[in-house]
Deep mutational scan, measured.
Amino acid sequence: GHYRIRINGREFEIRGISEEEIRHLEEALRNGADEKILKEIVDRLRG
């Protein structure tokens, strides 16, 4: 998958993330885990 997200007015492209991972992120966001989720995304993109 290849997705664009906007955070604090800046747009980011996220590549190589699966539909299942996105559902997991959405679930966590609904549970209020904003900073933790951003850290997970950044860590994943770093490799």
Rank of each mutant, 00 (worst) to 15 (best):
R30H: 12
A33G: 06
Y3P: 01
F12C: 02
G16I: 10
E35P: 10
A33W: 11
H2T: 14
G9Y: 01
I41M: 07
E11D: 13
I14S: 00
Y3F: 12
N31M: 10
R4A: 04
R30W: 10
E27I: 11
R23Y: 12
R10Q: 13
S18D: 05
H2W: 12
F12G: 00
K36E: 12
R23K: 14
N31K: 11
E40S: 10
R23V: 09
N31Q: 10
L25G: 00
I7V: 08
H24C: 10
R44S: 12
G16D: 14
E21P: 01
K36P: 03
E19S: 12
E19I: 11
R30A: 13
L45W: 09
R46M: 15
N8M: 05
L38N: 01
S18K: 08
L25Q: 00
G47L: 09
I17C: 11
K39G: 09
R46K: 14
R10P: 00
I5V: 12
K36C: 05
H24N: 12
G16C: 08
H24Q: 14
H2M: 10
R6T: 15
V42L: 09
Y3V: 06
R10A: 12
I41H: 02
G9L: 01
E26I: 09
S18C: 06
I14W: 02
R6I: 15
R10K: 13
N8R: 02
E35Y: 11
E20M: 07
E40W: 14
N31Y: 07
R23S: 10
D43R: 09
Y3W: 09
L29T: 03
R6D: 08
R6P: 02
E20G: 10
G9S: 01
I17P: 03
I17V: 12
E11W: 15
F12T: 02
G9D: 05
L25W: 06
G9I: 01
D43E: 13
D34G: 10
V42G: 03
R46A: 15
G32T: 04
R23D: 08
G16K: 04
A33Q: 06
D34M: 08
R44N: 13
E21W: 12
G9H: 02
D34T: 13
L29Y: 06
A28W: 07
E26A: 06
K36I: 10
A33P: 08
A33D: 08
L38F: 08
I22S: 04
E13S: 04
E21R: 03
K39C: 12
I41G: 00
